[in-house]
Write a protein that binds this DNA or RNA. Structure first.
Lengths: 273, 273
DNA sequence: CGGATAGTTGAGTTATCTCAAATGCAGTGG
DNA sequence: CCACTGCATTTGAGATAACTCAACTATCCG
């Protein structure tokens, strides 16, 4: 039992039921991290092309027009290592990450675990779980995570009422599918150093999109076991590889942040593009 | 250049432009393999829940009503090892497999290759390629393959005109996404024998759905290099594993067909369910 | 302070790979 | 019909990437 306090009763969590009004007044009880990209949710810094943003737009639109109570949402904050979306749990909610990092994974009975993707601010937790709850997948907070829960039934209603949203959903699904295919390629056909280098570069790229890169430096809250579970390796081996990368002055890791020092060489190792 | 005659001019291929009328008279110039499941395409034996079947229904419906020339399709047959859907090719067509097996894969510049899925009769070649052509993926015939090409633009029009189809597409995408996730788990976290056993069981299950299992026996056209590329192993190692499976009397392979002898044990090895 | 969680490092093991050789089969061209 | 070439499969020997185990240290948290 590695995590004895999973799924603690909601009583210990901070819950708000925002009354839907307008972007500027969205009741996020949190500091604004970044609004520069014009993202409709004042909390998160997702690119506006995201499904998240589109849904948000639509919510506002619908809200302004007619059905003010249509989409309730709840904001929660959970500490790191807590599960957000648990397998057995029959979940009627769809979480969207506002702040922090999470990891979506499958765990087998014997403890083997594969992280399928990291979920960053603005990402919907498992687009694939939109229509039906996804059994077998777990989403776990890597850092402290603030997220927003929408009722699945509400979202579905919204979705089917607006075919263009359904199209956006399809596009997102396709995108994620292509990502999943790349992951399979990485796991099936690439050696350890390549996998790790690619993971780092992919994260850097995604963070850059969100304005979360500081030149070559990013917040890097992943533990080595996260990297291991994402790359299909053991954490011991990850440690050795990261050590090598640092000794070769490709990257520098310290104090939960990672700097890419020699991008060219890192890309070469990663067989990037 | 392993396949010097890829993308042969269409002149050498058998092309039909069926005038859309009714299921019974669908102009498939091919023997009927199986119609018992009521599948609308008289050629293939896909379960009727498939997107393929739904689209087909809709085509007929639409056709009966108004726009007879709306969806043209072309039937082609290619020999084994020929590519159906080539990466660089700007493909405006969506193929649907009528007969035979194909493999959808990604190939890297240095020749490493990962097969993402096998495409069986009734499967649309890459649902994910519905909206936009998928660059980077190749679909290659394993056996001789007969397929039907729809114009992407036509299909898209049909899709957006019928939101229920869009929903079916979404569901198919989700399903395939879950498959892709399982593949990542297999490749990242399971040993060779487990991967191979799972591949065999998965294929058996899919074939059974199509009525293509003969008790415990199935046609098995895969070469060991297909299995290797699908499981992230080398064909040498696959050979050894399959050899072990046979010596342990779990399966029997001969003459392009495979029989599951000890299903219980095979499931145990595969960590099935 | 004690107890969990992380990270590092070394030694030895093993699953899988690479290379190579031998065989069989299918297709091709002469 | 036969030689020939290319592909698939099997098998063995040896190499190696990644794993397991274990010990040690550092860090964080109550």
């Amino acid at each position: 039992m590695p995590f004895p306090h999973l799924n603690e009763p909601a009583g210990t969590l901070e819950i708000i039921k925002p009354q839907m009004t307008h972007a500027a007044t969205l009741p996020c009880k949190l500091e604004v991290v970044s609004t520069e990209r014009g993202s409709p949710c004042s909390v998160c810094s997702a690119p506006e092309s995201h499904l998240c943003a589109k849904v948000q737009e639509k919510i506002e639109e619908v809200d302004c027009l007619s059905s003010p109570a249509m989409l309730e949402s709840t904001i929660q904050t959970v500490p790191s290592r807590r599960s957000i979306y648990h397998p057995k749990e029959w979940s009627e909610f769809i979480p969207v990450i506002c702040q922090g990092w999470a990891a979506s994974s499958i765990t087998l009975a014997d403890g083997r675990r594969q992280i399928l993707s990291f979920v960053l601010p603005g990402d919907m937790v498992s687009t694939a779980g939109f229509l039906e709850p996804m059994s077998g997948h777990t989403v776990e907070a890597v850092t402290e995570v603030t997220y927003r829960k929408f009722k699945r039934s509400d979202l579905k209603a919204l979705l089917f009422a607006h075919p263009d949203l359904l199209e956006t959903l399809s596009r997102t699904l396709v995108e994620e599918r292509l990502e999943a295919d790349q992951l399979a390629l990485d796991l099936g056909r690439r050696p350890a150093n390549e996998r790790i280098a690619r993971l780092i570069l992919k994260l850097a790229k995604r963070l850059a999109l969100r304005g979360m890169m500081n030149d070559r430096t990013m917040e890097f809250p992943l533990r080595q076991r996260h990297i291991a579970d994402a790359t299909g390796l053991t954490s011991v081996h990850v440690s050795k590889m990261i050590g090598e990368f640092q000794r070769a002055e490709l990257i520098e890791v310290s104090d939960r942040s990672l700097t890419i020092i020699n991008e060219t060489e890192l890309c070469r190792i990663a067989d990037w593009r």
